[in-house]
Computed example of a mutant assay.
Amino acid sequence: MSLLQRLKIRIRKVEERDKDYWVDMSIRRLRQGKVRYYRVKDELTGNWLFKVCRDDEMERVIVKALKCPPGGGFVQLEGRTMLFQKGLIEGYYYDVISLSYMDEEERLRRNVLDNIDDVPEIIKENFKVMKYEEVTGKKIVGKRLVVLCEENNEKDMILLFLIQRAWPISRIPLEIGMRASDLLELIRELEKAKIDEIYEAAENKFKLERENIDMLLELLEREGTIQRSEDYIKTKN
Rank of each mutant, 00 (worst) to 15 (best):
S2A: 09
S2N: 09
L4G: 11
R6Y: 07
I9N: 11
I9R: 08
R10V: 01
I11T: 02
V14I: 01
R17P: 10
D20C: 09
Y21F: 14
W22N: 10
S26V: 04
R28V: 12
R28M: 08
L30A: 00
Q32R: 06
Q32D: 08
R36L: 01
Y37T: 04
Y37L: 02
Y38P: 14
V40S: 12
D42M: 05
E43C: 12
E43Q: 09
E43I: 05
T45I: 08
G46C: 15
G46P: 12
G46D: 03
N47D: 04
L49G: 07
R54W: 03
R54E: 09
R54A: 10
D55L: 04
D56F: 10
D56E: 10
M58L: 08
E59K: 04
R60T: 01
V63Y: 08
A65L: 06
K67R: 02
P69V: 00
G72E: 06
F74T: 06
V75Y: 11
V75D: 10
G79A: 04
T81M: 06
L83W: 02
L83T: 04
K86S: 14
K86I: 09
G87S: 11
G87K: 07
G87P: 12
G87V: 06
E90Y: 07
D95W: 06
D95Y: 07
V96H: 15
I97K: 08
S100E: 06
E104Y: 07
E105Y: 15
E106H: 15
L108P: 13
R109Q: 03
R109M: 02
R110A: 14
N111R: 15
V112L: 14
L113Y: 13
D114K: 03
N115I: 00
I116R: 15
P120Q: 06
P120N: 09
E121R: 14
E121N: 14
N126R: 07
F127N: 00
F127E: 03
M130W: 14
E133C: 13
E133S: 15
V135R: 05
V135M: 08
V141Y: 14
V146I: 05
V146L: 13
E154V: 13
K155E: 01
M157Q: 00
M157S: 00
I158P: 12
S170L: 08
P173C: 13
I176S: 15
G177P: 12
R179E: 14
R179W: 06
D182L: 14
D182Y: 15
L183N: 13
L186A: 05
L186W: 01
I187Y: 05
R188N: 15
R188F: 12
R188L: 14
E191R: 10
K194H: 14
E197Q: 14
N204M: 11
F206Y: 02
K207Q: 13
E209C: 05
R210L: 12
E211G: 09
E223C: 09
E223M: 07
G224R: 07
R228A: 07
S229Q: 02
D231N: 06
I233M: 02
T235A: 05
T235Y: 04
N237W: 12
